[in-house]
């Protein structure tokens, strides 16, 4: 049991710091965004599992040979008032910490969900009053705003893609189609679930490098995945042009609509805050998307994809195995 908890703790440490740092610097994720996404999810799940597992196994060490036996003995103590003398202070401390961390993770996940849902409901209410349906199809609305803006608001059957007047004016029909396909890919591939999970992960453990790096990487990977969907039907040039127009327009909204006007008006706050912190996005996201489109590298070979997949499976299997297989490490 001691070696099990020791191995889990080492795994948790490795997944909290060096592995995410290395992965975030790696070049291959842009060649296989889906595989990279799977790996990030495996890292997050395995990291959480081994963190909690390490403490749980350490705390249960005196009362059971494996996790199940230990939990059964613990349940006896809690439910039937059996003596707890076998557990020392640090064992109880580890068990409480494991329970608190699990509760914290679940609670943060739920809280983030409630918060996101509330924001979405509010946003949808305002859209119902402010935006008008577009001719481009159901689930697309147009809002009266000068900067070129496109985004989607997920919500199952009520999902909606929002385009601004500024965007409609700045883009050619093919470019607009590329934008719409890109946004619809976010909706159909349920990227909102990934964003939710990783936002909660970061919210729960903000001081861990892994949670920040994972959120930044996931934000960038979903854009690549959606770009890849758009590229199936639209040309690369069209997509690049659309990205460039929207990006340059949203950084200096007034610029290409009215040449060198003294800005002011309601668009300028967007510009100033955008060049500032800029939320969860890595400032490199757009640049890496464009350079990925401009100088495409061949997709990752099948063998290496399989390797990533195997690594992800291992990441999940190892902590699970350490936890449930009795006496694996003595």
């Amino acid at each position: 049991m001691f070696w099990t908890s020791y191995s889990l703790a080492v795994l948790a440490l490795v997944l909290a710091w060096p592995v995410p740092v290395l992965l975030s610097r790696a070049e291959w994720p842009s060649r296989a965004p889906f595989m990279a996404m799977v790996l990030w999810q495996a890292i997050a799940l395995a990291g959480g599992l081994s963190m909690i597992g390490a403490m749980l196994v350490y705390g249960l060490e005196p009362i059971g040979d494996n996790l199940l036996a230990g939990l059964r003995a613990l349940a006896g103590m809690v439910l039937h008032n059996e003596p707890t003398t076998a557990l020392g202070f640090w064992h109880l401390f580890a068990l409480s910490a494991a329970a608190l961390l699990s509760a914290h993770l679940v609670f943060t996940l739920l809280l983030t969900y409630v918060k996101i849902e509330r924001q979405r409901r509010r946003h949808r209410e305002l859209l119902a009053l402010l935006a008008s349906p577009s001719g481009d199809g159901s689930g697309t609305v147009v809002i009266n705003h000068d900067s070129p803006v496109a985004y989607c608001l997920p919500g199952g059957a009520r999902s909606v893609t929002v385009l601004s007047d500024g965007l409609m004016a700045a883009l050619e029909p093919t470019e607009l189609r590329a934008v719409l396909i890109h946004e619809n890919a976010h909706l159909s591939q349920r990227h909102d679930l990934l964003l939710w999970a990783f936002a909660a992960w970061r919210q729960a453990l903000p001081w861990f490098p892994t949670t920040r790096l994972a959120q930044v990487a996931v934000n960038s990977l979903i854009e690549m995945l959606a770009d890849d969907v758009a590229l199936r039907t639209e040309s690369k040039g069209t997509l690049i042009k659309a990205i460039a127009i929207v990006a340059s327009g949203s950084a200096r909204p007034v610029d290409h609509l009215a040449p060198h006007g003294t800005s002011g008006q309601d668009t300028s706050p967007d510009a100033s805050s955008l060049s500032g912190t800029g939320g969860a996005d890595s400032p490199r996201t757009t640049a890496s998307r464009v350079s990925r489109l401009l100088s495409p590298r061949p997709p990752l070979p099948a063998a290496q994809r399989a390797l990533v997949l195997a690594a992800s499976a291992m990441l999940l299997a190892v902590p699970t195995g350490l936890l449930i297989v009795p006496g694996l490490l003595g």
């Binding site: 989607c152 967007d270 800029g278 969860a280 996005d281």
Partner: peptide, 23 residues
């Protein structure tokens, strides 16, 4: 709405998948 959409409003991260985030 646009602040939310562009992710520039405080405490409103990762709610919407937008075509271009911050630049």
């Amino acid at each position: 709405l646009m602040h939310e959409a562009l992710g520039s409003a405080p405490d409103r991260e990762a709610v919407l998948a937008r075509f271009i985030g911050s630049v």
